[in-house]
Amino acid sequence: MNGVQSVLAPRGQDAERIATLFWTMLGGGTLIMLAVAVLTALALKGDSPGRGWLRSERLVVWVGIVLPVCLLTALLAWGLFALRAGAVHSDPDALRVAVVGERWWWRVIYPGAGGRSFESANELRIPVGRTVNVELRTADVIHSFWVPSLAGKVDMIPGRTNVMSLVANATGVSRGQCAEYCGGAHALMSFHVVALNATEFESWLAHESGPAIPPADAETRLGQTLFITSGCGACHTIRGTDAAGRIGPDLTHVGGRLSLAAATMSNDAAAIGRWIRDNQHIKPQNRMPPFAIFDDRQLAALSRYLAGLK
């Protein structure tokens, strides 16, 4: 998993440009640091040849003012050009996706067929090579949307909609995380971005926009019944069932995601069971109450049902 969230392992256009900027600045900065160290050493060394020009105001004027002004002018200009290059792309072909920061998870809203949008959570799937304009909003406090290997971060601010452009250069999974402290479980508010090639993306999108898979056996049918009768639908939606809550993440295809609880834990039936019963220990202060009402058999049924919602 090393590098999955790294600025230095770029897999997107912006991240690559910024990584180049960083390595160049690091090189320049190292040279300057070495120069300062050498000058200091010479200054400390006592009488040595070449110490004469070190001891006058001329040193300060040339090395302390003129040189930095030249270097900084160049750096400023470069930074400004990079800033211009990274501005939001007005690409007519761009995919528009909305991500809403919630305490402490991500609501993802895709455009569906016929202008009807549908929701997912904590995972963003995007096509490789195509501009994705992500609309960033928040439902409560300030969050910040950040996928280091694709691009820099942009905050989600109440009353505003910020837009950022992502272009993934290669297929694969990147990890993102909330970068603005949002109280409570801020540390456990992550997500995955999965870059797919165009055809894979379209077929995924078609499947994802559809309703949930109906339960296939007795146990998962029990799981679905438990889900509906225990009030889970007050907060969660499973399209194709009566559960249409809007407070928590949409679970229509929860089993197909890479992680649970905003990339806090792996995603399988056992993990879902633990989450339902013990979520306040796994992710303290999260807004889902722990459900200790289920016995082991019921919990297994519910977990298998949810894990099966691919």
Binding site: I18, M25, M33, G79, A82, G86, G152, A179
Partner: peptide
């Protein structure tokens, strides 16, 4: 000096988009 140099780095806006927070 090290802190000053990294300060100049984060003053370059695009890099700060990554480094911020």
């Amino acid at each position: 000096t090290v802190g000053g140099l990294t300060g100049v780095m984060v003053a370059v806006v695009p890099f700060d988009f990554q480094a911020h927070d």
